[in-house]
Structure formats: C-alpha cells, structure tokens
Design a protein around this nucleic acid. Structure first.
Length: 465
RNA sequence: GCUGCCAUCGUCUAGUGGCCUAGGACGAUAGAUUCUCAUUCUAUAAAUCGCGGGUUCGAAUCCCGCUGGCAGCACCA
C-alpha cells in the first residue's frame, strides 16, 4: 500500500507554488498506485505561525482538486494530523532515544552556541555542536529539576558513511563526521522538523517521502533517527526545486509564489496542474496538454529529471489560454461570472463569451475587453481612424437608425456600404466606430458586440460624441 | 568557506552508445486569413549537447578532471 504525504507548515499566507508542485507529485503517485495521500500540518514553529494559514492552505488544496484521504480537518486512522497536537508522542520517543543513548540533554545558551559556531567558521570547519553537555553533565535530571531550560540533541555516531537511495538521483552519501548533533526537542518543548517528520512518517505508515531537493542535506539525520529507533526507512524521492528566471530558488521577491495569487489572476487550476506536471517530467508522447487522469496513468517517479526548472509564467499563460478555449461556453460563463464575484449580469456574460473565448488567456483578461458592455466608456476619437471628423459618427448613427433587423451580419453589411459610399478606408471607418462604441482600440468583433449591446445603446453612444 | 545536488536552443524538455547533419512545445521573427485584437495555418532563426581529457569502430548518451549554477550548513520548516 502506497501512502504519501504533503506536510505544509502554516507560516505563510498560503501554500507556496513549490509546495503545490510537491503536493501534485505526491497526490499523483499515491493515486496512481491506489494508495492514500494525506496532509499533515507541521506547525512546530510557534514563532512564525500565521493565524488562519492552515485553513487557507487546506482550501487552496481543495480549489486545485487535490483531494486527500486524511488530514487535520478530516481526521483518519492516524490522527491527529497536526503536529502541535502530537507533542506527547514526540516526548515519549525523545525519552526513548535518550535512554538508548542515541540522544542527550543540552543546556547550552544561545550565546555560547553562536560563539563556537563563529569560531568554527573562521577556522573553515563545519559548524558543529562541541558536545560540551554530553561530556560534562553527568546527571542532567538535577539541572532539569532545578528548572534549567534544555534541548535534546541527537548523538550522531562518528566515522560513519550514511548512504541512502533516492529514486530520482540514485545513491547519495554523507559522512557522519560532517553532521551536527541535531536538536530534536527545542527548549519550548516542541520538536524540530527532523524529529517530528521521522516519527510521524513512521507512525503514519508513510511509504514514500517525496519532497523538495532542499531536504537532501538533512536526510542523513533522518536516516540516523530511523536507525536509532530501529525503524525501516521510507523510499525517498527528492524533487527538483522550482526556480526564478535567474535560476535562484523560486522566491516571492522575484516571482508570485502563492498558489492563491494565480487563482486570483484567473489561472485555471487544471491548467496550473498541467503546467506543473511538465516541470521535471515530460509526457512519453511529447504531449503538452493532458488532464490529471492522464498524468496519473503516464507518470513515473523514475522519469523525473533532477534539474531545477525555471517557472516560466509566459508558457503558463499560453497553456491557460488553451484551457480556456477548450472550456465549454456555459462553463466558461460561470467561471467568469464567479471570478468577478457575480458583479456583472450573467446573461450578458453568456452572450459575450463566444466573442472573447479566443481572446483571453486568463479570466482577469475578460473585463478589460468587455467592460463597455456593462458601463459607458470614455470615448476619445483624436488620433483614431478618421480622427476628429465628427460628421462620420453622425452619418453612422443615421444609417444604423434605419436598421430594422438588429443583427450582426446586417449591421456589418450596412456599415461596409456606408464606408464605401463615404469613400473611407474600411480600417479607418471601423476603428472610428470601434472606439465610439467601446472606447478602446482593441475590442471583441464589432458587429457582434453591437448586436449584443443593442440598437438603442449604440445610437446613444454615437450621438454623444 | 564546507557538504551535497545538477549541467541539451532564451525557457520547459525529447534523447539511456549508431535512426542526432540533436526532435517537440512556449517565446521570437516573417507571411497567409482578418474592420482591431486574438484564434487558426505556414515558414524561419535559435543548442559546436558547459569545457578538457579518456573508453569505444562509433558518445549528447559511459568514466575522470575542471568550470559553472543551485541547495543546505538555525532551539525555520
């Protein structure tokens, strides 16, 4: 039974796009193998905790359609799924480690730690704790009873090569002598990531740890913990990290990183996921557009590339446009209606959808193109088409007024005739008309737009010039 | 600095020893369609496969070195 997990920490406003990417791969792998995908909230950093973040993260997952089998709001066989609710479990295991001699109490103050670290760096050594407390404090319980603050550290064995296999990268080796005695339990009583992740992954029967590449250097610490507990290792796969265009790790300074930002811009969840699927992986038939179901069928972890791909929002926009064009009209209508919080009349949106479907790349492109349907535009004819010659709009007005059958093709015919009669180039003629009606030089097809707008409004706009 | 990961068009990638004078997609450029903008279609440019050595009849593909990029080095995850 395959069980994968995503472990977001509620320290930001929402999930990071890189986290969404990791979630997608975890979800896909679990679903592909008829396994389970779970969400575990890693909220052990009490200082950076952001109020409401957990709820936003969960709702974003839902918005993207990555359903999970167990989680803080769903519960499950291995509950609780929030690490702050599992403190007793970590303490019990930490104590076990101390008793077995794999961990020890440390009472050192931050100032002293900073000092030795500084010294080691200046000596070009790897910064490591010097084991002062391990060597000098024989009966830690006395200090604890006195109310001294302490942490619990992992006692990293000396002179050992730690080897683990990564599905994407193969064998990876680390020397234990380069590994610091990692803090397992912080002085506030909360576990560090390293402690909590190992215990929870084991207790929750996680079979595959699929996470970002930045975790590779801490994996040997986790391996050591599994060994200390006498537990079997999970299968590891470290995903490439998404990069900014300049190749640095994707960051909010250089790129929008919150998944919800993309939703707010009118990117479609399905397009986002499709795009993300193409990061570090490619469809065996070189297809670019495919749905989650197909991804699930064709995806293999082994096929992932280890290179960190740049997140190219231009290609994302293209893909989103493809998805919009493939969306049935009534569905697209609802998407737009809801995107603008039901502010604009639904029936009017319905009529405009066929006109703009091939012209928008994301939902937020809709309003700039169609605003003139909903409110009076500001018209400035200077430098446009036939320019400030006001006789033309008047003539157009009079011609339109005669039309009984207010249909796009009839309007088009009459306007072509008028342009010919007036000896005005079609381009200039229609540009004048376009700006008069829409207020913009770029618009949906004119005749159809005028039909939708209605005779009365068109005449009104022309006469106002 | 140390430790580790990585290295094919600007970007995402195909490629797992001969089918590669390196293929596709985005983007770019040009053209066709068109009353604007898009869509659609066609074409073009774009990688001496980071560099240098090997191995081999033969290397983008295997090995070594170098260089470069990135990540990690917290009582953050």
């Amino acid at each position: 039974m395959v069980r994968t997990r995503i472990a977001p920490s509620p320290t930001g406003h929402d999930i990071h796009i890189g986290n969404l990417y990791t979630a997608l791969i975890n979800w896909t792998y679990a679903r592909k193998h008829n396994g389970q995908f779970i969400i575990r909230v890693e909220d052990t950093d009490r200082e950076r905790l952001v109020e409401g973040a957990e709820a936003r993260i969960l709702s974003t997952f839902k918005a993207f359609g990555l359903d999970y089998d167990e989680g803080p709001d769903l519960g499950g066989l291995y509950a609780p799924y929030r690490q702050s609710d599992r403190l007793k479990i970590y303490h019990k295991h930490a104590k076990e480690l101390v008793e077995k001699g794999h961990a020890y109490y440390c009472f050192c103050k931050k100032e002293r730690l900073d000092e030795i670290r500084k010294k080691q760096i200046s000596e070009k050594k790897i910064p490591r704790y010097d084991r002062y407390c391990l060597n000098n404090i024989k009966i830690p319980q006395e200090l604890i009873d006195k109310g001294e603050k302490y942490v619990i550290r992992l006692k990293v064995p000396e002179n050992r090569t730690i080897i683990f296999n990564d599905v994407i990268r193969g064998e990876i080796k680390f020397e234990s002598n380069n590994i610091d005695d990692q803090i397992l339990i912080k002085s506030d009583g909360y576990p560090t990531y390293h402690m909590a992740v190992v215990i929870d992954d084991y207790l929750m029967s996680i079979t595959h740890v699929i996470r970002a590449e930045e975790w590779i250097p801490s994996t040997p610490k986790h391996i050591l913990l599994y060994e200390a507990f006498g537990w079997p290792f999970p299968i590891y796969a470290h995903l490439p990290i998404l990069r900014n265009p300049d190749k640095s790790k994707l960051s909010k300074r250089k790129n929008p990183v919150f998944a919800s930002w993309y939703l707010e811009q009118g990117f479609l969840p399905k397009a986002m996921l499709n795009f993300l699927a193409l990061m570090g992986w490619s469809h065996p038939e070189q297809k670019e557009i495919f749905d989650l179901n197909e991804f699930k069928e064709k995806f293999e972890l082994e096929d992932m590339q280890p290179v960190g791909p740049a997140f190219d929002i231009v290609k994302l926009e293209w893909m989103n446009g493809e998805y919009i064009r493939r969306t049935p009209n009534d569905e697209l209508r609802t998407l737009i209606y809801e995107f603008y919080l039901k502010e604009y009349p639904e029936d009017l949106i319905t009529k405009t959808v066929p006109l703009i479907k091939e012209r928008i790349k994301k939902l937020s492109d809709y309003l700039p193109l169609c605003e003139f349907f909903f409110k009076e535009p500001e018209v400035d004819l200077s430098g446009v088409g036939t320019g400030r010659d006001l006789s033309l709009p008047q003539k157009i007005h009079d011609e339109l007024e005669k039309i009984e059958d207010w249909k796009a093709d009839v309007i088009g015919e009459k306007m072509q005739e008028l342009a010919k009669r007036e000896n005005v180039k079609a381009g200039d003629f229609f540009m004048t008309l376009r700006v008069a009606i829409t207020g913009k030089k770029i618009s949906p097809p004119l005749n159809e737009s005028m039909e939708i707008l209605g005779k009365e409004k068109c005449l009104e706009r022309l006469s106002k010039i």
